[in-house]
């Protein structure tokens, strides 16, 4: 049992290298992950920004996107939602700043 050789007082040494098991990362199912609230909020704000042409909403969506990105855990899973929110937010900003001023005022 006591295959380690450095210690003469092996009886008092609690270590057992033979019993050592390497670390196995337990896979976490996507359902167990904490809910990505910020991503959801970002999507909501992004859609609102696009729908109502509301700048502040698009900006908030981008901020929440950043939060969601900062808290990312599972890359494949979260990236979908974040990319969607990002798309909406950027689309909102683009239509706000670059697009036609408003449907009513087009010539």
């Amino acid at each position: 049992m006591s295959s380690h050789n450095n210690h003469s007082t092996s009886a008092n040494d609690p270590r057992q290298p033979s019993a050592a098991k390497p670390f196995v990362a337990t896979p976490v199912s996507p359902q167990d992950l904490p809910v990505d609230y910020s991503g959801f909020i970002a999507v909501v704000f992004g859609i609102a920004g696009v729908m109502f042409r509301y700048k502040l909403s698009s900006w908030l969506a981008i901020i929440f996107c950043a939060q969601s990105l900062a808290n990312i855990r599972n890359v494949e899973n979260d990236l979908k939602q974040i990319s969607m929110a990002m798309m909406f937010a950027i689309m909102g900003l683009v239509t706000n700043y670059l697009g036609p001023a408003r449907p009513g005022t087009q010539s």
Binding site: P14, R15, A19, A20, F23, A70
Partner: peptide, 24 residues
């Protein structure tokens, strides 16, 4: 993670720190 001790298979310590990286 630590392992290789009598009476136990292993020990897993999980540190859950404040979300200091997240301003919100």
């Amino acid at each position: 993670y630590a392992s290789g001790r009598r009476y136990c298979l292993g020990l897993l310590a999980t540190m859950e720190l404040k979300s200091r990286h997240d301003l919100i």
